[in-house]
Simulated scan of single mutants.
Amino acid sequence: QGRTVRFGIRLHTITRDTADAAWTEAARLLEAIPDELLAEQQANLRKSESEGQRRMLKLNAGDRTGLEIYPNLWAGVGLVRGGAGTALVGSHREVAALIKEYATVGFEEFVLSGYPCLEEAHWFGEGVLPLLEAESLWTPPGRTTKCLT
């Protein structure tokens, strides 16, 4: 067909200056979910016919434990949210390293977000983007070449 296949991934991020601070934030988000809401959302998510949702439910098993499914990859978001339910969690360096790992295996597009949106965008923009730029994995909008300083 003359087309080139490209791959992308949709993830959340929880990144802080230290890994401990990032995991503390992940735990805080999880603790804020009432048991009743978790049970209700899990029941609703089980009604989905989506293969992706079925796989997400298998990753988190509807349980608050064992949610780090790969180093710095956390399935906690998927306990109460349909669709993208995993988050990159860790220090800025750890999150940048995991993004690099995804890029190395062929992912070219990343759709990233977090909770609360503005605050996580700040943490990511200030902490992770400079590291990705240094690795030539990201270029600021409007800049075509890396700035030498």
Rank of each mutant, 00 (worst) to 15 (best):
Q41Y: 05
S91W: 04
R55P: 13
V77R: 14
I69G: 07
T145M: 13
S136T: 08
H12K: 00
A43I: 06
G106Q: 01
T86D: 05
G142I: 05
L29D: 10
P116R: 05
D17H: 12
A43N: 02
G106R: 02
S136C: 00
E94D: 15
L38M: 08
S50C: 06
G2W: 14
Q41P: 08
R16I: 02
R46M: 05
T86S: 04
G83K: 06
R81Y: 04
G90E: 11
Q1D: 15
P141T: 05
T15I: 12
R3C: 15
P141F: 02
E94P: 10
L11M: 02
E101D: 15
R10D: 11
A27C: 11
K47M: 04
Y102S: 00
Y115K: 01
A121T: 03
R143T: 02
W138R: 11
H92S: 10
A26Q: 06
Q53G: 04
G127C: 00
E126G: 09
H92Q: 08
W23V: 08
E109A: 07
V128C: 03
D63K: 15
E40G: 07
L98T: 11
P71G: 01
G2Y: 12
P116T: 02
V77S: 09
I69A: 14
L79K: 03
Q42N: 12
E119I: 05
G127Q: 09
V89W: 05
R6E: 03
N44V: 06
T86L: 08
G83C: 02
D35H: 07
V128H: 02
H122V: 15
A39C: 01
E119G: 00
T149F: 14
F7L: 06
R10Y: 02
A96W: 07
S91V: 04
S50H: 07
V80H: 09
R55E: 15
T149I: 13
A75Q: 11
E94R: 11
L88F: 08
Y115V: 06
I99R: 07
A61F: 11
N44M: 10
N44K: 15
W138N: 04
L98Q: 14
T139C: 08
T65M: 14
P130S: 07
L11K: 08
G52H: 13
E135V: 04
R54V: 03
Y115D: 09
T24V: 13
G62A: 01
L148S: 14
L112D: 01
F7Y: 13
N44G: 10
G82K: 03
A21W: 07
A39N: 03
E120G: 03
E36R: 05
P130T: 07
N44L: 14
T86G: 06
E40Y: 09
A96F: 02
V80P: 12
G66T: 02
F107I: 12
V5T: 00
T65C: 05
A19K: 14
T18N: 10
G62E: 01
I33T: 08
N60L: 02
E109P: 04
A22N: 03
V111L: 01
E109Q: 07
V111Y: 04
G142R: 11
E94N: 15
D35Y: 00
A61V: 00
R93H: 12
R46P: 00
D63M: 11
L132E: 01
L73T: 12
R81N: 10
W74K: 05
K146L: 01
L98A: 05
F110E: 03
D35Q: 03
C117I: 15
R55W: 12
T18Q: 07
G76Y: 09
H122M: 04
